[in-house]
């Protein structure tokens, strides 16, 4: 089977990283922040009744697969995406794509990726990676959160692609069929920003978008009354872990999005975008402070109402700032 040359770079986030690496392979020189922003990767959701490994589901990013789909759509790149009913079909389809000389992106569960350190290996099913070749019986892997390329056995890869739980990857695989030699960023950037603002500000349900930050703040305030100290600590810990989901700088992707706004501002020569980048950096620092305070609370094993109240207030303040921020971003005249 052919093994093609694939230029691997490490990135902050798996899906924007995979998207960036796949696009660069096609000769489109895009940065990770640009892919993240055009793909409207930033989001917030807190769904108390959806338990992931026993803790309420919290996310700071959009649903898996969305970034790649949106970026390629907005840059008019022709792609193929597919889910599979059985591991056999999924692995066969992968072999066919590799034989045709194309690298393929796919969803996986980090639990079944032996090349990752054990510390990271929970049942987290929304991890993206690229398989770019096969040597002997092993697949060659470009995982954007790892510094260098690596390898994986077919059994492990099949398990990772067919992990159960929330969400289920079902072998989801995607690749680029063809790409134009030149891409136009302006409209793509606008569409990405508009969509981000819409998802942050418009969902009528309390669990999604900016509203959900307030919901989480309210829930945290009630943790001491409703939960044992141990549970409260684990719940808070999960929020921090999602906030720092491999390399976001502890700010739940806010710095990555700010980097996008800055780059977009330079590219389109718009001072307002540069200014918004600075503003979001400050908000990102607030998120970091929230995580610091939450960690301190967990370490002290405090379970008094006052400290949880303060934490809730901190979070509410960040939520309010972000709400104003996204309203301003939405009001941009293009």
């Amino acid at each position: 089977m052919s093994t093609l040359h694939f230029s691997h770079s490490q990135h902050a986030h798996c899906e924007s990283g995979v998207t960036t690496n796949l696009l660069r392979h096609q000769g489109i020189n895009i940065s990770e922040p640009m892919a993240f922003g055009i793909g409207a990767g930033i989001f917030f959701a807190h769904i108390p009744f959806l338990k992931v490994s026993g803790t309420p589901g919290t996310t700071f990013r959009t649903w898996p697969g969305a970034i790649f789909k949106r970026v390629t759509e907005r840059l008019h790149i022709d792609i193929h995406t597919q889910k599979f009913s059985t591991p056999e079909k999924a692995m066969q389809a992968l072999d066919n794509v590799l034989a045709a000389g194309k690298p393929a992106g796919m969803l996986s569960s980090v639990y079944y990726l032996p090349y990752l350190p054990e510390a990271f290996r929970f049942h987290f099913n929304a991890h993206n990676l690229v398989v770019y070749g096969k040597e002997g019986n092993e697949y060659l892997v470009s995982d954007p959160v790892v510094e260098t390329t690596t390898r994986i056995a077919p059994e492990d890869l099949a398990k990772a692609r067919f992990a159960k739980g929330t969400p289920e990857p079902k072998g989801f695989m995607y690749y680029i069929k063809s790409a134009p030699s030149q891409v136009q960023y302006e409209k793509a950037i606008q569409a990405g920003i508009k969509q981000t603002c819409f998802f942050m500000l418009s969902p009528p349900l309390p669990w999604f978008g900016n509203k959900a930050i307030g919901l989480l703040a309210k829930k945290i305030t009630k943790y001491p009354q409703k939960l044992t100290p141990r549970k409260a600590s684990l719940y808070l810990g999960n929020v921090i872990r999602m906030q720092e989901e491999i390399g976001t700088g502890g700010a739940g992707f806010r710095f990555l999005y700010a980097a996008f706004l800055q780059e977009a501002g330079q590219l389109l020569q718009r001072d307002d975008l540069q200014q918004y980048a600075k503003e979001l950096t400050t908000i990102g620092d607030d998120w970091r402070n929230f995580a610091y305070s939450a960690a301190r609370l967990m370490k002290d094993r405090k379970n008094d109402l006052v400290s949880f109240d303060e934490l809730g207030d901190m979070l509410r303040a960040v939520g309010d700032k972000e709400k104003q921020f996204f309203h301003k971003l939405q009001a941009i005249k293009w």
Binding site: Q10, H11, A12, E32, P33, L116, P117, V145, V146, E147, L236, G237, N238, I240, R241, Q243, E244, I246, G247, T248, G249, G250, F255, L256, A258, A259, Q262, E263, A277, K278, T281, A291, Y292, A294, A295, M298, K299
Partner: peptide, 28 residues
């Protein structure tokens, strides 16, 4: 493994930096 993070340099521009990890996340 180390992670990649985005941070602001002296010139005010965002750049990617490698990070060994972050205490609050390590603790959690």
């Amino acid at each position: 493994i180390t992670k990649v993070m985005y941070a602001v340099g002296d010139d005010g521009k965002y750049t990617s930096v490698n990070s060994a990890g972050w205490e609050p996340d390590n603790f959690a």
